[in-house]
Amino acid sequence: MIEWKDVTSYRLGERGTRAPDAWACNVGGLRISVVKGHVYNPGRWSLRCDPWFDVTDLDLSSDATGEEAKKASLERVRCQLQNSIDPISEALK
């Protein structure tokens, strides 16, 4: 089970009064971050996961939930990992 941490930047006394809009997790040595309203993508969900994704728009509707954004980010990273593994697997045959 992946443990997502709320990494939202709250103002003093604001925690618990509004929904989180940023999460991060560490999986297999990768740090995956999801944020809504990044300065480059205002009002949109974005993904960051070095070395492949640097503030990448997740192409979700503006009313998508954080859970949907987390799931979409994991799928994007999984696809990128698979695209990286396939040529290596082919070379080993």
Score class of each variant (00 low, 15 high):
Gly28Tyr: 10
Ala91Pro: 09
Met1Asp: 11
Ser73Ile: 00
Glu68Gly: 10
Ala22Phe: 04
His38Phe: 12
Glu68Trp: 01
Gly43Cys: 05
Trp23Arg: 13
Ile88Ala: 15
Lys93Ala: 14
Ala64Glu: 03
Asp50Met: 10
Asp54Ala: 10
Trp52Asp: 07
Thr56Asp: 13
Val7Pro: 11
Gly37His: 03
Gly43Pro: 05
Ser73Asn: 01
Lys93His: 14
Ser73Thr: 00
Thr17Gln: 03
Arg44Lys: 10
Leu30Met: 07
Lys36His: 04
Met1Arg: 15
Asn26Cys: 13
Asp59Ala: 14
Cys25Met: 06
Ala64Trp: 04
Glu3Phe: 12
Met1Leu: 09
Arg31Phe: 07
Gly29His: 07
Leu81Trp: 01
Gly16Tyr: 00
His38Met: 05
Lys5Glu: 11
Lys5Ala: 07
Lys36Ser: 10
Arg44Thr: 00
Glu68Thr: 08
Leu47Ser: 01
His38Val: 11
Pro87Glu: 05
Ile85Asp: 07
Glu90Pro: 12
Asp57Ala: 06
Trp52Arg: 04
Arg44Pro: 01
Glu75Thr: 13
Ser61Met: 12
Ser33His: 07
Trp4Ile: 04
Cys25Ala: 12
Ala19Gln: 13
Thr8Pro: 10
Thr8Ala: 02
Leu81Ser: 00
Glu14Lys: 01
Ala24Phe: 04
Gly29Asn: 02
Gly16Phe: 00
Gly16Lys: 00
His38Tyr: 02
Leu74Pro: 11
Ser46Lys: 03
Leu81Ile: 02
Arg31Glu: 12
Lys71Cys: 00
Lys5Asp: 06
Trp23Met: 07
Glu67Asp: 15
Val77Gly: 01
Gln80Asp: 01
Ser84Thr: 15
Gly37Glu: 03
Asp50Ile: 12
Ser73Gln: 08
Lys5Tyr: 13
Lys36Met: 07
Asp50Val: 11
Val35Glu: 11
Thr8Asn: 08
Asn26Gly: 14
Tyr10Trp: 11
Val55Cys: 14
Leu30His: 08
Leu12Val: 06
Asp21Phe: 15
Leu60Cys: 05
Ser61Pro: 09
Gly37Ala: 02
Pro51Val: 06
Gln82Glu: 13
Thr8Asp: 07
His38Cys: 09
Ala24Arg: 14
Arg31Asp: 09
Leu60Tyr: 11
Gly16Met: 00
Glu3His: 09
